[in-house]
């Protein structure tokens, strides 16, 4: 029963390879495209043999887009920076607000706690466009339109419910007895939160933070409406590649590769925190 036949092993590996190929192919193709000119990309039939060029990356970094219609100014690098700042900023704010809230919702049963938690989650259900129009008007009135602060605030609609609900689950999974034990040992509730609950929920916090970062990074519509050119993230900035003389596939691909990198780096870094099992052995059973 535990000894699998050789045929089964081979088949299993083939199946896994197919799945990997299916998911990784688009990314692989995009990486290839980013090293090609528009001409080699668009030739028929497509081929993986080409003269690699760094021109796409150069164009993005220098901010000069060469098209048949002439040279266009693009500020992709500042878009990238905006994305980084907005995403990191919103996740930071989201964690500062969300972790204590998640702890409260997870540990303290107060009147209406479930309703409030659910209301917060329901922000995720509303179509962004529905809230955007009133939001734009308000923001213009109170001078928050086209500010980083305003954008980070609006981004909380995306990151806060996510962090709240994921982290809450992790707090709830910590046996209450462990915290009781620390309290009875003579520590205040805040000290218990800091030295027991926080470290034990760390895998959840890391997962929630990473996920929130990705969602914030990928956001398009809020930034499109609320941010002007100098505050736009890459998602909106990529529109600039659709030029009068056609779509610059090479630069688009290079842009995608550059914009995947920060999230990828973060995911790799956060991976060790995502490994669970920290709480194994604390409680019998």
């Amino acid at each position: 029963m535990d000894q699998t036949s050789t045929l089964e092993k081979v088949l299993r590996r083939v199946a896994i390879s197919l799945v990997i190929l299916f998911f990784m192919f688009p990314i692989f193709w995009i990486v290839l495209m980013s090293f090609q000119t528009n001409e080699t990309i668009l030739r028929v039939p497509p081929s993986v043999i080409f003269e690699p060029t760094l021109s796409n990356y150069v164009a993005l970094v220098t901010g000069k887009l060469e098209t048949q219609a002439g040279t266009l100014e693009i500020n992709f690098m500042s878009n990238l920076w905006n994305s980084l700042f907005l995403s990191a900023g919103s996740v930071a704010v989201g964690l500062i607000l969300g972790i204590p809230a998640a702890y409260a919702f997870g540990r303290i049963k107060f009147r209406g706690s479930e309703d409030i938690a659910f209301t917060l989650l329901s922000f995720r259900f509303a179509p962004p466009l529905l809230v955007l129009l009133p939001l734009t008007i308000y923001f213009q009135k109170i001078g928050l339109a086209d500010t980083y602060f305003g954008l980070i605030w609006v981004y909380q609609l995306i990151v806060l419910p996510l962090i709240l609900w994921i982290v809450r689950g992790y707090f709830e999974d910590i046996p209450a007895d462990i915290e009781y034990a620390y309290r009875i040992a003579g520590h205040s509730w805040f000290s218990t939160f800091r030295t027991v609950a926080l470290p034990l929920a760390m895998p959840g916090i890391a997962a929630a933070g990473l996920l929130a970062f990705i969602f914030a990074w990928n956001n398009f519509i809020f930034a499109l409406v609320l941010a002007s050119a100098d505050k736009q993230p890459v998602t909106v900035g990529a529109l600039a590649f659709v030029t009068a003389s056609g779509i610059q596939y090479g630069q688009v691909a290079a842009g995608i590769v550059l914009s995947i990198l920060p999230t990828l780096a973060l995911a790799l870094y956060a991976q060790r925190y995502l490994v669970e099992g920290l709480s194994l052995g604390a409680v019998k059973g």
Binding site: D177, Y180, L278
Partner: peptide, 13 residues
Amino acid sequence: IGMAFQNFALFPH
């Protein structure tokens, strides 16, 4: 008070 729990409730970290 000193208390010991049935499931031990040790701090795993």
